[in-house]
Lab assay of single mutants.
Amino acid sequence: SLEELLKLARHALRHGEEIHVLDRVITDEHEIKRLIEELERLI
């Protein structure tokens, strides 16, 4: 769900981890922040 993805993204950002989204691995902090902003808009 989007909520789950948002939780994962926030966790990854906090802990400096990578996040796997739709067969992509996002490691860049700015990309993760952008993902979080997009998800928050959708929810």
Rank of each mutant, 00 (worst) to 15 (best):
I32F: 04
E40R: 06
I26S: 02
E18P: 15
V25T: 09
I19C: 03
L2E: 03
E29V: 14
L2Q: 03
L22N: 15
R14L: 15
R24A: 07
H30S: 13
R24Y: 09
L2S: 03
V21N: 03
L2M: 08
E31C: 05
V25H: 08
E31A: 09
L22S: 11
G16Q: 08
I43E: 03
D23K: 02
L2V: 07
L13D: 02
G16K: 10
L13F: 06
L2P: 06
R34A: 14
H30L: 13
K33C: 03
I26W: 14
L42V: 07
H15C: 06
H20E: 08
A9F: 10
R24S: 07
R14T: 14
I43M: 07
I32M: 07
V25K: 05
H11Q: 08
L6H: 02
A9N: 00
I36S: 00
E31I: 07
E37R: 12
E18V: 14
S1C: 09
L39N: 00
I32Q: 03
H15T: 13
R14W: 12
E37W: 12
E17P: 02
V21A: 07
K7M: 12
E31V: 08
H20M: 12
I43V: 08
L8E: 10
E37I: 12
D28S: 13
I43F: 06
A9G: 02
L8S: 07
V21L: 15
R10G: 05
I26C: 03
A9E: 00
I36N: 00
E31D: 11
A9I: 13
S1M: 13
L8R: 13
E37Q: 12
R34S: 11
H30P: 06
I36Q: 00
I43H: 04
A9V: 10
E4F: 09
L8T: 09
D28P: 03
L5S: 02
L42W: 08
R41I: 08
G16I: 03
L6D: 00
L22P: 05
E37M: 12
E18Q: 13
L8V: 08
L13N: 02
I36W: 01
L6Y: 03
L22F: 15
A12F: 02
E40I: 12
R41S: 08
H20N: 09
L6F: 02
R41A: 10
H20W: 12
L39I: 10
R14K: 15
R41N: 08
E3G: 07
S1I: 10
R34W: 12
I19H: 01
H20P: 04
R24P: 02
E29W: 12
R24V: 09
L5A: 04
L5N: 01
H15S: 10
L39P: 00
E37A: 13
E37V: 11
R10D: 06
L5Y: 05
I43Q: 04
V21Y: 15
H30T: 13
R24N: 06
E38D: 10
L42D: 03
K33T: 09
S1G: 12
V21S: 04
V25A: 05
R14C: 07
R14A: 15
R10S: 07
E31F: 05
I43G: 02
R10C: 05
R41D: 06
L35E: 01
L8A: 13
R34N: 10
L22R: 08
L2G: 01
V21P: 01
E29Q: 14
K33I: 14
E18T: 14
I26L: 12
I26D: 01
S1F: 14
K33H: 08
G16Y: 04
A12S: 04
E31W: 05
L13A: 04
R14N: 12
A12V: 03
L2D: 03
I19D: 01
H30G: 14
I36Y: 01
R24H: 09
L5M: 09
V25I: 12
L13K: 02
E18I: 11
R24I: 09
I36F: 01
L6T: 01
E38K: 11
E38N: 09
V25P: 05
L39S: 00
K7W: 11
R34M: 14
H30A: 14
L5E: 02
D23S: 03
H20S: 09
E29A: 15
I26K: 01
E38I: 13
I26E: 02
L13C: 02
V21E: 03
A12P: 01
K33W: 08
L39M: 04
L13V: 04
T27I: 09
R24D: 05
I19E: 01
T27V: 11
E37S: 10
V21T: 07
E3C: 05
E37T: 10
H30K: 13
R10T: 10
D28Y: 06
K33G: 07
I32H: 01
L39H: 00
E40H: 06
R10V: 14
A9T: 03
R41L: 09
E31P: 02
E37F: 11
T27S: 14
G16E: 05
R41G: 06
V21R: 02
E17T: 15
E40A: 05
L2Y: 10
L5T: 04
R24L: 10
I26N: 01
L8D: 07
E4G: 07
G16R: 08
E3Y: 12
H20R: 15
D28C: 04
E3A: 10
A9Y: 13
S1V: 11
L8N: 08
A9R: 00
T27H: 09
E40F: 05
H30C: 06
E17N: 11
K33N: 07
H11E: 11
E29P: 15
I43Y: 05
L5D: 01
E31M: 08
R14H: 13
L8Y: 07
D28H: 09
H20I: 14
I19R: 01
L42Q: 08
I32L: 13
E3D: 08
T27W: 07
L39T: 02
L22I: 08
V25E: 05
A12R: 01
L42G: 04
I36R: 01
K33Q: 12
I26M: 07
L22A: 14
R34V: 10
L8F: 06
L6K: 01
H15M: 10
L5G: 00
D28N: 11
H30E: 14
G16V: 03
E3H: 12
I19Y: 05
E17Q: 14
E3R: 11
E18F: 11
E3Q: 11
A12E: 01
K7C: 05
H11T: 06
L2F: 08
E38F: 15
V25C: 04
R10I: 15
V21G: 04
K33L: 14
H15F: 12
G16M: 04
K33E: 11
V21M: 12
D23E: 06
I19G: 01
I26Q: 01
L42T: 06
D28A: 11
A12Q: 02
K33F: 08
H15P: 01
I32K: 07
T27K: 14
I36G: 00
E38W: 15
E38H: 14
L2H: 05
R41T: 07
E17Y: 15
L39W: 06
L42F: 07
A12L: 02
L6C: 03
E29Y: 14
H20A: 09
I19K: 01
K7N: 11
I36C: 03
L35W: 10
A9D: 00
E3F: 11
H20Y: 09
S1P: 11
L6P: 00
V21K: 02
L42N: 04
T27G: 09
V25M: 04
E31K: 05
L39D: 00
D23L: 03
E17L: 15
K7D: 13
L39A: 01
H15K: 08
L39Y: 03
E29G: 10
E29D: 07
E31T: 08
L39C: 02
L2T: 05
D23C: 02
I36V: 07
H11I: 06
E40M: 09
K7E: 15
H11M: 06
H30M: 13
H11N: 08
E37N: 09
R34E: 12
T27L: 06
E4C: 05
H11D: 11
T27C: 04
L6R: 02
E38Y: 15
G16H: 11
E40L: 10
H30V: 12
R34C: 06
E29M: 15
I32R: 01
K33V: 12
G16S: 06
E29I: 14
E31S: 08
R14F: 13
L42R: 09
E4A: 12
H11F: 05
D23W: 03
L13M: 05
L13P: 00
V21H: 08
D23N: 08
L5R: 04
I43A: 04
H30N: 14
R10L: 15
L42S: 06
E17V: 14
E40T: 08
I26F: 15
H11W: 09
A12D: 00
L13Y: 07
R14G: 07
L35M: 06
S1N: 13
R24E: 06
R10W: 15
K33M: 14
L6Q: 01
L22M: 13
A12G: 04
R14E: 15
E17G: 15
A9S: 04
H20G: 04
H15W: 12
H11Y: 08
E4D: 12
I43S: 03
H15V: 09
